[in-house]
Design a protein around this nucleic acid. Sequence first.
RNA 1: GCCCGGGUGGCGGAAUGGUAUACGCACAACACUUAAAAUGUUGCGAGGUUUUCCUCAUGCGGGUUCGACUCCCGCCCCGGGCACCA
Length: 810
Amino acid sequence: MKYNPQKIEQKWQESWYNSNAFRAKNGSKKRKFYLLVEFPYPSGDGLHVGHCRSYTALDILARKKRMQGYNVLFPIGWDAFGLPTENYAIKKGVHPSVVTKKNTDNFRRQMKEMGLSFDWSREINTTDPKYYKWTQWIFLQLFKHQLAYKTKISINWCPKDKIGLANEEVVDGKCERCGTKVEKREKEQWMIKITNYADRLIKDLDLVDYLEKIKTQQKDWIGESDGALVKFSVEGIEEFIDVFTTRIDTIFSGTFLILAPSHNFIDKHKNKIENIEEVLKYREDIKNVSDIDRTNQDKDVTAVQLKGITVRNPSTNEKMPVWTADFVLENYGTGAVFADAHDKRDFKMAKKYGIPLRTSIKPDDELLTQKVKNLEECFEGEGILYNSMQFDGLKSAEARPRIIAWLASKGSAYPKISYKLRDWVFSRQHYWGEPIPMIYCKKCGWQPVDEKDLPVKLPNVKKYKPTDTGESPLSLIKKWVDVKCPKCNGPAQRETDTMPNWAGSNWYYLRYTDPKNSKKLADETILKYWMPVDWYNGGMEHTTLHLLYSRFIFKFLWDIKAVPTSIGPEPYKKRTSHGMVLAQDGQKMSKSRGNVINPDSVVKEYGADTLRLYEMFMGPFDQMIAWDTNGIIGCRRFLDRFWNLVLAEKKAKKSSKEVQAILHKLIKKVSDDLDSAKFNTAVAAFMEALNFFHGKQNEVGQEAIEKLVILFAPFAPHITEELWSATGKKGSVHMQKWPKYNPAFIKEEKITLIIQVNGKVRGKIEAKTGITEEKAKKLAMAEQRIKELIAGKEIKKIIFVPDKLINIVI
RNA sequence: GCCCGGGUGGCGGAAUGGUAUACGCACAACACUUAAAAUGUUGCGAGGUUUUCCUCAUGCGGGUUCGACUCCCGCCCCGGGCACCA
């Protein structure tokens, strides 16, 4: 019988599906293991081979953990709200829910055809009102805890998608999705105070096992800087301008102050600024400049002085002029900086406008020091302080805490930590999203929808095109918009903005534990059992989006005790990322390039097991890798040989010692590799073992064959299941116990001892394991080649590494 | 500019202080075949040669070590992240 995947795969898929073979059990006494893959956005393109890589990897882990006796939760669902579906629906004139249904059906089919062992009874969909009821409920809790607020802000507006974007969704000043340059628009938006959690989102990374690059990326994004807040008193006005700095060691060289163009000091003291018209005009000019141009470092510095305004440097008590310049950003720190000769931008600006400069930090280098003192060059680094009163001679790092303490004693500074992270823009002006459950009453202001009235269902309408005005299309549905105020019962209006598509994915992993609960987002006892997620795999592109948002929302739910505190403050114990799968040409796969590999066609040609094996074998799991059509054939050949070997082995029951050693080494290697996500070397180990067994059919033995099939089952579930039944075994191979290796079998009796002379390999000898240094020396010296090499030379030293090598130094 | 990865045969890659090039692809020869495909066997870093042998080779240059792809110092290149961030 020849291996024919097309004949066997569907049969087993149906058998697993119909028997609920991989259902996770709530209320089990077994140890649990929660494996999570990011649920996909069900696009019309179907599954990408990159999805397959991530899903196969965690499927292998799930199957192995089940065989190791764990109660495994390995669920899947659909993150189905979002723009592409809406756009497609508008174009084709079909309702987004119809499109979603079609796409999820296709995804589900593809996943089943890959033999993924998801617990299909827990499938969730973010667009299901029973699901988004709780997404809305979470929003209400955020509002009730003052973490959701509506405010007029300048937002990133994508003119093509007609949607406001969060800062995280803007890449290089362009819309993350469509690449259109974003514009600035003033709009009332719902905001979520993620900034309140900035410190904990950094600190708690110490509690979890994430790939180091994921931790670094999150830290960089949150952008903590440790510094001080310094108060500059304004002359003639009873007021201070606050400045955040990380370089308080340079305070003595501060000779002027710069405000961001839209700093509210300017609005507040219009009458005191002599050239207010010039200042306001400058502010208008800046508004029309995009962030990209504003942050272009090659650009010339522009600035305007606020005439009539001076402040005092709290360290020197000297008067300083106040300026405004575009390179000072309103949304970082306090929107104001003190400027000196130790900052390139300040230096450039002072030179251009003839503002006096002073230096107070000496670099190590004498020559450079002279240049710095003569203001010929700007020195930004750390050094030794001078011109700094009692702090002269101190190093920058030593000086900082002392200067802060000194200024603090005068009441003009205190230590402060600042973050780059900004509050999260939570409103979208589109139809296909969760309605924000808020009602506006002219009398009572913003009122939350009563929890018992949730979910606020998306009305089923014909027109869901986004509008050019930036109003949500929902605003056109008067019947839906006009409601009574929950507080005063007077006339009021619903919020017509919807949530971003991150809202549904913020908490989905909680819902999987108890997906049908209508009373709570999930039951406490059940959450207590399953949470936290033991291993979460997803794309690197979600590190500063979904991963950060969902960690934040979990912390919030934890704080308000919506989830049991026993889980701890982090939802995911371990996070890994799979490398992107590129097209054969090394480019990103895309329809327009025509280089997309469709998993369906691979399954059709080679079978699902081959696809799974190749996805794991192609390279290190966390590295980006190009698809290689030629490489697939090797995996298929391996499966053919595997099939033949198992079926050919008929005679011997017992396996030889040599076979046992190979097998148990393989068990150890595969078990270890899977725990550290080294799928490629695990597959290679199978190939190596099979190469060894090949041609020795009847020496391998049924004993070894049986273990081999079990061990390989998580990788290639169909072929192993078929072989299990074809060799007359009862039950499913996937319900068998994961083999344990026996260290006694691995221990070899004979080893190859390497003989080196001066660290170079000059010979090998077969020896018994545990050979003594004395014996090894004798044997080595007896070798003809070694004799020749050391003849007439003085032996300085002999290094002996037991069971490995002997090195003769001459 | 700063912070992470990475650089090994014709190609994807393996080895984290101890036989560099596992495993796979491609290629070549042979076997089977009328033939081809498939399959199997063997070979496959470079150069030399006295061919159970030598020299060189893991981006480049140094260093530590009996011994370095692996550790340290200084560069170069590629990928990713952050960035007038005070």
